[in-house]
Write a protein that binds this DNA or RNA. Structure first.
Length: 103
DNA sequence: CAACACAAAGTAG
DNA sequence: CTACTTTGTGTTG
């Protein structure tokens, strides 16, 4: 994991859960997408996918952390960064992610 | 205490 | 089958 990011997270006074979620998000390989549920399971709270969304919303580094790679199970989730969902879709498309059935 | 960047199951059409 | 509603869950403000 990237230590610089870790330091930044701590500086923002994030909770342990948040740290785990954001860290997991950082480890998502380029061109891959992950569902909120997957992230939740990854951090040890398989039923906290909702909380994962809340955590990502407070994401201090919209660029550093590829939060746009976290999508909803049904389709494309929401995005707090600039450009909103549209921007998110563009980013994923640009990375070559599989946005086949995404809407 | 109320809200949320979700999910799955249930109801209605 | 598709669309809308309800219920569960964990964290944040």
């Amino acid at each position: 994991m990237d230590k610089r990011i870790m330091r930044g997270l701590e500086a923002h006074g994030l909770t342990a859960f948040q740290i785990r979620v954001l860290d997991a998000t950082t480890q998502i390989p380029k061109g891959e997408t992950r569902t909120y549920k997957q992230i939740a399971a990854m951090v040890g709270r398989p039923r906290a996918y909702r909380a994962v969304g809340t955590a990502l919303r407070l994401n201090p580094f919209p660029v550093t952390i590829p939060c746009h790679r976290v999508v909803r199970s049904d389709g494309l989730g929401n995005y707090s960064g600039d450009g909103g969902r549209r921007r998110k879709m563009e980013l994923l498309k640009m990375e070559g992610a599989d946005i086949d059935g995404l809407r």
